[in-house]
Design a protein around this nucleic acid. Structure first.
Lengths: 231, 231
DNA sequence: GTCTCTATCTCGGAC
DNA sequence: GTCCGAGGTAGAGAC
């Protein structure tokens, strides 16, 4: 990894064209050829960048560049798409290299998958007498998060989200449409379950006869550990 | 901006919990309090991070941490959500500070807006005799990209995307449903226009009687400059 | 402020 | 490989 602090301007041509005027920035050149251009603010997204795999090269300086005060010009080209990042360096403030080695990577824990797991184990949260048929029930257009049956044995398709928005209702609607064509399954009712359901999503869901269930993640986790201590 | 290269482990607790085992990494601490943890690979997304506004603090080392070899412990806490990033430092390799100043920011050019502009100017690409009514035609649930009329004067609602996926078809479907309730406009037909249309999106669109049109961006730009040189 | 949609999205998983 | 869905999405624009 090479870390450079320099006064520079940057131009990107690829899916779009973009330009960064001359200013002092951090340039991170990674081992895989990628380049990040960061300012001292904003969030984790760089001002501009080139994704790997990319090739780094020094360009010949044109007379025009030299007159403008450019002392070095980098081109970073994406190996597949040909997208190009061009960095004009006007002044060096720092230039260092470090060997970092490969990273063991991030270990994540608990998101939508965990909600699905918890709800499958506590399916009665959908209503008394409900039973789990299976998680990830496969249909022609993809897996339904949970297939269950109510106290009367009628099929229930459950779509689980962390945040319930319109997209999720549309997704469940497509599943329901398909599943209701299956005579072995029909009639299938829909349940939209999420930690939080946006009003617009709730309106759309209820308009389509889909029941909305708000899941309390902490409560469900508590119930889980409670179950564990009971047995 | 403070740049640190250090052997460290990182823990995040917030919307999810995540852990980075001990390894050598780049830590970027920005002026707004945000922190980025980068490895020497991957794309622009850090392994882990804290968004601004955040507060940086040094934590007291527990006996356990000291025994494990931790020589410094950072806590970076989000001011609003309370999300926390905790960095355990095991070894310093570099630690430097730089003054970068504020950045003039990125100037972008040409994406979906440009496609819309071009199609509005070349509306006959939808078919002979087509005429533009207006761009960004307002409906109760949002603006339709383009409203046009065909050779017979029937209304056409156009949804434009760079990449046509299922979401876009759903969006257009909602607009069509609404517009077709307007007796002054109905019947309204839909056109889904994109530089590239995914097979699943095409299938869904055609199933709903929505016509798909693939736009050739370069060709349209060429036509535009051609028009400019003609007059 | 809220909501909505885009993104040079990135990332992971399934097929 | 391609396609699809999730994201601590972030960021911009409209209302």
């Amino acid at each position: 990894m090479r870390l450079v602090i320099a006064r520079c301007s940057v131009d990107y041509t690829g899916r779009l064209t973009a330009h960064l005027p001359e200013a002092t920035r951090l340039l991170i050149h990674k081992a895989d050829g990628s380049l990040l251009v960061h300012s001292d603010g904003g969030s984790y997204k760089p001002l501009n960048w080139m994704s790997p795999p990319a090739i780094f090269d020094l360009a010949e300086l044109t007379e025009e560049q030299q007159l403008a005060g450019v002392i070095e010009c980098w081109t970073v080209t994406h190996k597949k798409t040909g997208d190009e990042l061009r960095v004009n360096i006007f002044e060096w403030l720092s230039d260092e290299r470090f060997e970092l080695g490969t990273d063991p990577g991030l270990e994540k824990d608990g998101v939508e998958a965990h909600l699905q797991e918890l709800l499958a184990a506590q399916i009665e949260r959908l209503g008394d007498g409900h039973t789990l048929v299976r998680r990830e029930h496969m249909t022609a257009i993809g897996p339904v998060d949970i297939l269950a049956r109510d106290a009367e044995g009628a099929a229930i398709a459950v779509e689980i989200k962390r945040r319930g928005e319109i997209d999720g209702v549309e997704q469940l609607t497509r599943y329901l449409e398909l599943m209701n064509r299956d005579p072995l399954l029909a009639p299938v009712r829909g349940v939209f379950a999420a930690q939080e359901i946006k009003p617009q999503a709730r309106t759309l869901a209820e308009d389509r006869g889909i029941r909305c269930v708000v899941l309390d993640y902490n409560d469900m986790r508590g119930a889980e550990s409670g179950e564990l201590t009971l047995f």
